[in-house]
């Protein structure tokens, strides 16, 4: 199994990054660090997907010099999926950051535990 991990080092690195991002998103207290964890997790998935499209010895799927056979190009579908995913990741990061701005303006702290404590004292 060790040799498989080394041959597919791209996917192995992607999985490690996914776990790092996931743990950060779940366990960190600071909101900005959670958002960074979210971005790391999503980037890891895109790295995994991009790795899956690559076929050794072939080139980018843009028709050059009229070469139209399928054998000359890599798989173009994962590239399209990654593009969609990146846009989704940008949108949710923007949304989370604007929520953080509102919370900071109101409670002057970025720590979720402190915000929960302040919330107990507040009314409705």
């Amino acid at each position: 199994m060790g040799s498989n991990l080394i041959v597919n080092y791209g996917e192995a690195v992607a999985m490690i990054l996914f776990v790092i991002g996931f743990a950060n998103l779940l366990l960190q207290n600071n909101l900005i660090k959670k958002i960074i964890g979210l971005n790391i997790m999503d980037s890891a998935v895109y790295l995994f997907l991009a790795e899956k499209g690559y076929i050794v010895g072939r080139t980018v799927p843009i028709v050059v010099n009229g070469v139209q056979s399928v054998e000359a190009y890599i798989n173009p579908i994962p590239a399209g999926l990654v593009l969609t995913g990146i846009v989704v990741s940008v949108s949710v990061s923007a949304l989370m950051l604007s929520l953080t701005i509102r919370l900071y303006r109101r409670y002057h702290t970025l720590n979720l535990d402190e915000i929960a404590a302040l919330l107990q004292k507040e009314g409705l």
């Binding site: 579908i77 846009v87 949108s91």
Partner: peptide, 19 residues
Amino acid sequence: MILDYRAFDTFGESNVLFV
């Protein structure tokens, strides 16, 4: 690729940006 084969996904994605 994204605007013909997966055009519906790209439409969904522009709506993600919009929402």
